[in-house]
Amino acid sequence: MELTTVWFALIAVLWVGYFCLEGFDFGVGMLLPVLARDDTERRVMINTIGPVWDGNEVWVLVAGGATFAAFPEWYATLFSGFYLPLLMILVALIVRGLSFEYRHKREEASWKARWDAAIIWGSFVPALLWGVAFANIVAGVPIDADKEFTGSLLTLLNPFGLLGGLVTLTLFATHGALFVALKTDGDIRHRARDLAVRIGSVAAVLAVLFLVWTQVRTGTPTTAVVFAAASLALVGGLVAARAGREGWAFSGTFVTIALAVAGLFLALFPDVMPSTTDPAYSLTTTNAAATAYTLKVMTWVAVVFTPIVLGYQAWTYWVFRKRISVHHIPTPVLADATR
C-alpha cells in the first residue's frame, strides 16, 4: 500500500476520533439550557466533560497538522477556501474553552449566565459548521487549474451542505444527551435519556436522507454497506436508550458517527477535494501529497507516539469513569457581607 493511501486513512481515523469524542462534548454544551434546571445541574453537566474535553480537541489539532504535512496542497486549498467557516469554528472553540475555565471564578448569576451562553454557542457553531464543511468536501467545490478555491461562503451554504450541518448538529446533540445519561444519576439522567430518544429520532431521519443523497452522488457498493451499518447502529442506539441501557445506547451513537465519517472518506477517496469546475482540477491523494521522504518520516513518528497518546487518553477516561450527581457538587461558599 502506498504511503499516500496510508496517510489518507490515518487522517480519516483522526477525524473519526475527533467527531466521536468531541461530538458528545458539543452535545453536552448545546443541551446545557435544555437539560439543566438550576446551576447545580449545569455544574453536573459541565463536570461530565470537564476532565476530557481538552484532550478530545487534540484530535482535530493532530488531524490539521497531519493534513498540512502529508497533503500540503489539500491543506492550502481547504484552509484558504473555507477560511471564514473555519475561523468561526476556531473562535467558537476558543471562547468555549475559556468558558470552562472562567465560569466558576465568580458566583454572580449574571457572570455564570454569560459564560453559559458562551459554552452553548461555542458548541453549537462547530457542531453545525463541521457538517457543512465535510459535506462540501465530499460533494466537491469549485477549484481552478491552479488548485485554488473560486467560490465564496454562499457556495458552501447549498442544500447538501446545510443538510450535512443539520445532521452533525442533531447527531452530536443525541450523542451528548446519551453521554449525560451515562455519566450522571438522578432526575437529570432520566431527562437526558428521554431527550436523546426525541432528538435522535430527528437525527435518524436527517442522517438517512443525507447518507442516501451522498450515496447517490458519490457512493460505491462499499459505502452503501457502511452507511447502512451506520443507520442500523443509530436505530439500535435509540432502542437501547428507550430500554434504559445507556451504555449500549451511547455505543450505538458512537459507532454511528464512526461509520458515517468513515463512509464519507471512502466516498471521497482517491480524491481529497473534488473540483466541480473540472474533474481534472481535483486534488487527489497523489497530486496533493508531500514527498515520499516526508511521508516516511511522519509514519515512523506516528508509530512511536500514537500508542502513547491513545494509552494516556484511555487512562483518563478510566480514571473519570464513575457517575456524578447533584450531591457531588459542593455548595459554594459565599463571601461574608459584613467584611
Rank of each mutant, 00 (worst) to 15 (best):
M1T: 10
E2F: 12
W7M: 07
V13M: 15
C20Y: 09
F26M: 14
G27A: 04
P33F: 06
R42S: 08
R43L: 11
M45C: 09
I46L: 15
N47R: 13
G50Y: 12
P51Q: 10
G55N: 00
L78H: 06
S80D: 05
P85N: 00
L86P: 04
M88K: 00
A92T: 01
I94H: 07
V95E: 09
F100A: 04
R103N: 05
K105A: 07
E108R: 14
W111V: 03
K112T: 11
K112D: 10
A113V: 00
A113Y: 04
R114D: 04
R114T: 07
I119P: 00
F124N: 01
V125R: 01
A133C: 14
A139E: 14
I143W: 03
F149G: 05
F149T: 07
T150E: 14
T155P: 11
L156F: 03
N158H: 05
L163S: 06
G164A: 03
G164F: 00
D194V: 14
G200A: 03
G200Q: 01
V205P: 11
W213Y: 13
V216D: 11
V216S: 12
G219C: 09
T223W: 05
T223C: 06
A224I: 10
V226M: 09
A228M: 11
S231F: 15
L234A: 11
V235A: 15
L238F: 10
E246M: 10
F250I: 03
T253E: 03
F254W: 14
T256N: 11
L266Y: 13
P270L: 00
P274T: 03
T276K: 06
Y281N: 13
A290R: 03
T291I: 04
Y293G: 10
L295N: 12
V304P: 01
Q313W: 07
Q313P: 00
W315D: 11
W315I: 08
T316S: 12
F320W: 08
R321I: 05
R321W: 08
K322V: 09
K322I: 05
H327T: 15
H328Q: 11
I329Q: 10
T331S: 14
V333M: 08
A335E: 15
